[in-house]
Design a protein around this nucleic acid. Sequence first.
DNA 1: CGCCTATAATTGTCAGACATTTAAAGGTCT
DNA 2: AGACCTTTAAATGTCTGACAATTATAGGCG
Lengths: 242, 242
Amino acid sequence: MKSESPGSDLSSDIARDIRDAIVEGRMIVDERLPSEAELAEQFGVSRPTVREALKRLAAQALIRTQRGAFGGAFVNRLSYEEAYGQQVTTSTLLLSMNQVSFETACEARYAMERACAELAVERRTSDHLATMRAEVDRQTQPGLSDEGFCASDVALHRAFVDAAGNPVLSYQLAGAVEAMQPLMNMITFTARSRGEIVALHTALLDAVEHRNAHSAEIALRQLEAYTLTLGQDVMAARARAG
Amino acid sequence: MKSESPGSDLSSDIARDIRDAIVEGRMIVDERLPSEAELAEQFGVSRPTVREALKRLAAQALIRTQRGAFGGAFVNRLSYEEAYGQQVTTSTLLLSMNQVSFETACEARYAMERACAELAVERRTSDHLATMRAEVDRQTQPGLSDEGFCASDVALHRAFVDAAGNPVLSYQLAGAVEAMQPLMNMITFTARSRGEIVALHTALLDAVEHRNAHSAEIALRQLEAYTLTLGQDVMAARARAG
DNA sequence: CGCCTATAATTGTCAGACATTTAAAGGTCT
DNA sequence: AGACCTTTAAATGTCTGACAATTATAGGCG
């Protein structure tokens, strides 16, 4: 009674069977799967085929494997970090491979960030403020490369999102914010544009410090508008260059 | 010059090498990878090891394979649908495996949905309205099961999010909305609670129809509050039951 | 009693073979 | 000449059997 669909591919079928068992809760976290040899017998296939199925699951962080006696494959508790990673990779590829316009990506990102404003100003701790301030400071340093500037930008926004104190929100936003980094990295930041951005970051920081959600949203809106103009200039230049 | 880190695992290393090549743009969409035999020679490993690496990449939809002459592995254009699927699976597991509270998940979901309100009321087409209306109608039908009610709920919210006309936003929201379905499915909806929800859905629908972002946000906020009370009742009952 | 060693279970890797699929090349008939 | 069929070769999919590497447990030794 094995389920099939994609032109028959044993390792796919087996991976799906096991994945379903995990997703539907028939296997619980840290539960050990049968050994590869046992699985091979159960599914009526060879060990390499089972191994291919297990590697598929491992790639999605659904299982982890351990060598040695009493080792084997175990249902993995998907950590926030692993989920972040998957989220960022998937989002980045989605953007880079689907001719998603800078406008669309930017709009989505800032819409979601604004969704954090209310919670962030309410729950931010002094730690969050300190992190944001440190990043703003870094952004004013003269020797900073464009890539370093972008990285600091991401770190600041990350701190802002984390200030909302909702790990699910942080996880969802990770993709939206980090996936834009490759697009942002194409931008050459002039001293003037850096100044503008730092000013807006400072406005955001002040709003968070004074727990003013409305001001935070305005700062984010201005940041979106300014980022958009910078991005559009780059895209236009690239279009001219061919 | 092979990169290594996790206690040496050849198929992991190879998968990472290839993944990096794709993510960094050194391999472009639809480009064909060398055959398994060639890869085995290049990396100095056996074909089964190469195959395990390729299955890892296939599990993340980074490549697709085609049998037969002139077949092979090709860099896959990550479609929105594939990305949705990954997003939903990852989000669902993250919620179910990490004792994420109903409150936290609910808060994140509605915060993100509210972020769509402004764009949705501005860009919604009559199609979006019709879909939403159809789902509200379905929700009033007497014979509808609780699962059917939840599914319709997801469909309505999905239409609302899609109305924002930003595919990246739709993609990001897919996880937040659908991952809550297992939690919602634990709720037994009484006739009274269904009535309340339908009333709020109708309010949301009206707001979208009349392009009133503020009303839409209020409806969503009320929906969040009501969903939260329903969920908390269930959680409390489960806690008592042990 | 503590340390060391042997053991067995399990994953990781390899080699070679055969089955299956598929597109392209070449041949045949009209 | 053109349409249809057959062959062929390249590639993935799968199997078998073996060996290497790792590791927790059990047993032996001082």
